[in-house]
């Protein structure tokens, strides 16, 4: 129950900046869609005057555009930044909110879980908003083109298999779960980095560097193993090894976080 309350407080504090982020992303995308369609209209008219036929527009042209990619990039960077900021935010200023959080009479791991779930929910939130936005954009896109009688090529389903977007539109629920697990792994790694750094920052000036070494060391070892055995294993065995390595790393990272959060954290 405590975790749920902690989550609601975390969300409450991040609400404003999250809405701003979403606002920016939507503005960027819908604004660009307008401009894109307007330009298509202009070029189509031109082509028609010159009598050239066979000009078609595909939704992929829109998705592949730099601005759209930029918006997705911004979202990703924002989330990576936030996975770290959700902790550092509580260390800001002399009045460290972390002091308050650490004196709450429940296990500190509840705090870890709460922040973890908050980040994952925010990421899923962005996914959700992007799904809805893209779907909406396609409706606008096709409606506008039909209205202007510009030939439209390819379906929405086809368009979303466009390289990196396939990550957002996995073919099956299982793939979706795998993607989320991988995202969660990245968030966990970032969390561990922060906690190790915060556990060492009063002990040595090199704490960020040391934290990076510790976390990347913990990740590098299994990765090296996977690469080394790549020569000897087949796809099914490699997946097995990868799964094992992932579980091992998750276990290692969580243990490390727990140790630093409960024993080494220094405010």
């Amino acid at each position: 129950m405590n975790v749920l309350k902690l989550i609601s407080w975390e969300l409450d504090r991040v609400k404003k900046s999250y809405l701003i982020l979403v606002g920016i992303l939507l503005l960027l995308q819908f604004g660009w869609l307008g401009a894109f369609l307007w330009r298509q209209n202009a070029t189509y008219e031109e082509m028609r005057l010159e009598g050239m036929t066979g000009y078609t527009v595909s939704f992929i042209n829109y998705i592949g555009s730099t601005i759209f990619t930029l918006s997705v990039g911004v979202a990703i960077v924002a989330m990576i930044f936030f996975s770290v900021w959700i902790w550092y935010r509580d260390f800001q200023g002399r009045g460290m909110f972390m002091m308050r959080l650490l004196t709450i009479p429940t296990g500190r791991m509840e705090l870890f879980v709460a922040k973890f779930v908050t980040v994952m929910m925010l990421i899923l939130g962005l996914f959700a908003i992007q799904w809805m936005a893209l779907f909406l954009q396609y409706q606008l896109f096709s409606a506008w083109l039909n209205a202007k009688m510009i030939p439209l090529q390819g379906s929405f389903e086809r368009a979303i298999q466009f390289d990196y977007l396939a990550m957002m539109y996995p073919e099956s629920g299982f793939n979706f779960l795998v993607h989320q697990v991988l995202i969660a792994f990245v968030v966990l790694a970032l969390f561990t980095f922060v906690l190790v750094e915060r556990g060492l920052w009063q002990r040595t000036l090199w704490s960020p560097f040391l934290a990076i070494c510790v976390v990347s060391g913990l990740i590098a070892l299994p990765t090296f193993l996977i690469i080394y055995f790549d020569r000897y294993l087949f796809m099914d065995e490699q997946i097995g090894l990868f799964g094992l390595a992932l579980i091992g790393m998750v276990f290692g990272l969580t243990l490390l976080s727990r140790r630093f959060l409960s024993k080494k954290m220094s405010v």
Binding site: S8, D12, M121, L124, G125, A128, W131
Partner: peptide, 22 residues
């Protein structure tokens, strides 16, 4: 404050539905 969790939860479910459909 629980309303924040509920709100985000709703957005996620609606998003998932859109994804499932489209």
């Amino acid at each position: 404050r629980i309303v924040n969790v509920v709100a985000l939860g709703v957005i996620i479910t609606v998003g998932l539905a859109t994804y499932a459909v489209s």
